[in-house]
Design a protein around this nucleic acid. Structure first.
Length: 171
DNA sequence: GCCAACGTTGGC
DNA sequence: GCCAACGTTGGC
Protein backbone atom coordinates (compact mmCIF):
# COMPACT_ATOMS: atom_id res chain seq x y z
CA UNK A 1 0.00 0.00 0.00
CA UNK A 2 1.53 3.31 -1.04
CA UNK A 3 1.97 5.97 1.60
CA UNK A 4 -0.26 8.25 -0.41
CA UNK A 5 -3.28 5.98 -0.03
CA UNK A 6 -6.40 8.06 0.54
CA UNK A 7 -6.72 7.19 4.23
CA UNK A 8 -3.35 8.79 4.90
CA UNK A 9 -4.04 12.03 3.09
CA UNK A 10 -4.80 14.67 5.65
CA UNK A 11 -6.26 18.00 4.86
CA UNK A 12 -4.11 21.02 5.48
CA UNK A 13 -5.28 23.61 7.92
CA UNK A 14 -4.79 27.35 7.62
CA UNK A 15 -3.80 29.82 10.32
CA UNK A 16 -2.65 33.34 11.02
CA UNK A 17 0.13 34.20 13.45
CA UNK A 18 0.86 37.71 14.63
CA UNK A 19 4.23 39.20 15.33
CA UNK A 20 5.33 42.73 16.07
CA UNK A 21 7.90 43.44 13.37
CA UNK A 22 9.92 45.59 15.78
CA UNK A 23 10.40 42.40 17.78
CA UNK A 24 10.43 39.73 15.06
CA UNK A 25 9.57 40.53 11.45
CA UNK A 26 9.22 38.38 8.36
CA UNK A 27 12.72 39.53 7.40
CA UNK A 28 13.99 38.17 10.69
CA UNK A 29 12.38 34.86 9.80
CA UNK A 30 14.01 34.97 6.37
CA UNK A 31 17.38 35.58 8.03
CA UNK A 32 17.00 32.81 10.62
CA UNK A 33 18.82 29.49 10.29
CA UNK A 34 16.76 27.21 8.01
CA UNK A 35 14.38 30.21 7.76
CA UNK A 36 12.79 28.61 10.81
CA UNK A 37 11.95 29.77 14.31
CA UNK A 38 10.15 28.69 17.49
CA UNK A 39 6.86 30.52 17.82
CA UNK A 40 7.43 31.16 21.51
CA UNK A 41 5.96 33.57 24.04
CA UNK A 42 2.25 32.93 23.43
CA UNK A 43 0.52 33.29 26.81
CA UNK A 44 -3.14 32.99 25.96
CA UNK A 45 -4.99 29.73 26.56
CA UNK A 46 -7.01 29.72 23.38
CA UNK A 47 -3.91 30.34 21.29
CA UNK A 48 -2.06 27.76 23.39
CA UNK A 49 -4.66 25.13 22.55
CA UNK A 50 -4.24 25.88 18.87
CA UNK A 51 -0.46 25.60 19.10
CA UNK A 52 -0.54 22.44 21.23
CA UNK A 53 -3.39 20.53 19.63
CA UNK A 54 -4.34 21.79 16.24
CA UNK A 55 -1.41 23.00 14.18
CA UNK A 56 0.02 20.13 12.18
CA UNK A 57 3.14 19.74 10.08
CA UNK A 58 2.64 21.22 6.64
CA UNK A 59 -0.17 23.56 7.71
CA UNK A 60 0.13 27.01 6.19
CA UNK A 61 -0.04 30.22 8.16
CA UNK A 62 -0.28 33.86 7.24
CA UNK A 63 2.49 35.88 8.85
CA UNK A 64 0.90 39.06 10.18
CA UNK A 65 2.70 42.19 11.30
CA UNK A 66 0.85 43.70 14.25
CA UNK A 67 1.46 46.99 16.03
CA UNK A 68 3.08 48.26 12.87
CA UNK A 69 2.60 50.98 10.30
CA UNK A 70 0.99 49.63 8.39
CA UNK A 71 -0.23 46.49 10.10
CA UNK A 72 -0.90 43.69 7.64
CA UNK A 73 -0.08 40.31 6.17
CA UNK A 74 3.59 40.05 5.22
CA UNK A 75 3.81 36.52 3.87
CA UNK A 76 3.31 32.81 4.39
CA UNK A 77 5.02 30.32 6.68
CA UNK A 78 4.41 26.65 7.37
CA UNK A 79 4.42 24.47 10.44
CA UNK A 80 7.51 22.27 10.52
CA UNK A 81 7.32 21.05 14.11
CA UNK A 82 4.13 20.38 16.01
CA UNK A 83 3.34 21.61 19.52
CA UNK A 84 5.96 21.16 22.22
CA UNK A 85 6.62 22.91 25.53
CA UNK A 86 7.62 26.56 25.34
CA UNK A 87 10.86 26.54 27.31
CA UNK A 88 10.94 30.35 27.58
CA UNK A 89 8.23 29.97 30.26
CA UNK A 90 10.80 28.15 32.45
CA UNK A 91 13.46 30.86 32.13
CA UNK A 92 13.37 33.39 34.96
CA UNK A 93 15.29 35.88 32.85
CA UNK A 94 12.88 35.67 29.93
CA UNK A 95 10.21 38.37 29.63
CA UNK A 96 7.65 35.60 29.09
CA UNK A 97 8.70 33.67 32.20
CA UNK A 98 5.74 32.05 33.92
CA UNK A 99 6.37 30.33 37.27
CA UNK A 100 3.22 28.21 37.01
CA UNK A 101 4.57 26.39 33.96
CA UNK A 102 6.86 23.52 34.97
CA UNK A 103 8.93 21.33 32.67
CA UNK A 104 7.00 18.19 33.70
CA UNK A 105 3.60 19.91 33.46
CA UNK A 106 4.04 22.69 30.93
CA UNK A 107 1.36 25.32 30.61
CA UNK A 108 2.59 26.90 27.41
CA UNK A 109 3.41 25.41 24.04
CA UNK A 110 4.94 26.48 20.78
CA UNK A 111 5.44 25.21 17.24
CA UNK A 112 8.24 25.76 14.77
CA UNK A 113 7.45 27.64 11.58
CA UNK A 114 9.48 28.02 8.42
CA UNK A 115 9.21 30.84 5.91
CA UNK A 116 7.51 29.82 2.69
CA UNK A 117 7.16 33.16 0.98
CA UNK A 118 7.54 36.84 1.75
CA UNK A 119 4.89 38.72 -0.19
CA UNK A 120 6.09 41.21 -2.79
CA UNK A 121 3.93 43.73 -1.02
CA UNK A 122 2.50 43.75 2.46
CA UNK A 123 -1.28 43.49 2.39
CA UNK A 124 -2.46 46.14 4.82
CA UNK A 125 -5.18 45.47 7.37
CA UNK A 126 -7.04 48.48 5.99
CA UNK A 127 -7.21 46.78 2.59
CA UNK A 128 -8.48 43.51 4.09
CA UNK A 129 -11.24 45.37 5.89
CA UNK A 130 -12.55 46.69 2.60
CA UNK A 131 -13.08 43.22 1.10
CA UNK A 132 -16.61 41.93 1.65
CA UNK A 133 -15.52 38.40 0.77
CA UNK A 134 -13.33 38.34 3.90
CA UNK A 135 -16.31 38.86 6.15
CA UNK A 136 -16.09 36.54 9.14
CA UNK A 137 -12.30 36.42 9.37
CA UNK A 138 -11.26 36.23 13.01
CA UNK A 139 -8.67 38.92 12.37
CA UNK A 140 -11.35 41.36 11.28
CA UNK A 141 -13.71 40.74 14.15
CA UNK A 142 -14.18 43.61 16.51
CA UNK A 143 -11.81 43.50 19.45
CA UNK A 144 -10.08 40.38 18.16
CA UNK A 145 -6.69 40.00 19.82
CA UNK A 146 -5.88 36.34 19.29
CA UNK A 147 -2.24 36.04 18.28
CA UNK A 148 -2.70 32.57 16.78
CA UNK A 149 -5.97 32.07 14.96
CA UNK A 150 -7.66 29.91 12.34
CA UNK A 151 -8.21 31.14 8.79
CA UNK A 152 -10.63 29.63 6.32
CA UNK A 153 -8.97 28.24 3.21
CA UNK A 154 -10.97 30.54 0.95
CA UNK A 155 -9.85 33.58 2.93
CA UNK A 156 -6.27 32.39 2.91
CA UNK A 157 -6.40 32.06 -0.85
CA UNK A 158 -7.98 35.46 -1.37
CA UNK A 159 -5.20 37.14 0.59
CA UNK A 160 -2.43 35.17 -1.06
CA UNK A 161 -3.83 35.85 -4.51
CA UNK A 162 -4.00 39.57 -3.69
CA UNK A 163 -0.29 39.42 -3.00
CA UNK A 164 0.44 37.46 -6.18
CA UNK A 165 1.49 34.40 -4.17
CA UNK A 166 2.54 31.28 -6.02
CA UNK A 167 1.53 29.21 -3.04
CA UNK A 168 -2.15 30.03 -3.09
CA UNK A 169 -2.57 29.75 -6.84
CA UNK A 170 -3.24 26.04 -6.54
CA UNK A 171 -5.46 26.16 -3.46
C1' DG B 1 0.46 58.28 23.47
C1' DC B 2 -4.44 57.23 23.68
C1' DC B 3 -7.81 54.17 24.60
C1' DA B 4 -11.26 50.38 23.60
C1' DA B 5 -11.59 45.65 24.08
C1' DC B 6 -10.19 41.64 26.31
C1' DG B 7 -8.19 38.27 29.55
C1' DT B 8 -6.63 37.33 34.17
C1' DT B 9 -6.43 37.84 39.07
C1' DG B 10 -8.01 37.82 43.52
C1' DG B 11 -11.14 39.46 47.33
C1' DC B 12 -15.38 38.37 48.95
C1' DG C 1 -19.30 32.28 41.33
C1' DC C 2 -19.30 37.30 40.93
C1' DC C 3 -17.07 41.21 39.52
C1' DA C 4 -13.85 45.20 40.11
C1' DA C 5 -9.19 46.13 39.36
C1' DC C 6 -5.48 45.55 36.69
C1' DG C 7 -2.46 44.36 32.77
C1' DT C 8 -2.07 43.59 27.82
C1' DT C 9 -3.07 44.00 22.93
C1' DG C 10 -3.01 46.48 19.01
C1' DG C 11 -5.15 49.98 15.83
C1' DC C 12 -4.87 54.59 15.17
Amino acid sequence: MPKSSPTRIEKLRFWLIKSEPDVFSIDDLAAAAQKTTHWDGVRNYQARNTLRDQMKNGDLTLFYHSNALPAGVAGIAKVVREGYPDHTAFDKTDPHYDPKSKPDTPTWYMVDVKLVEKFKRLIPLEELKRLPELEGMVLLQRGSRLSVQPVEQKHFKIIGDLAGSRVTRTL
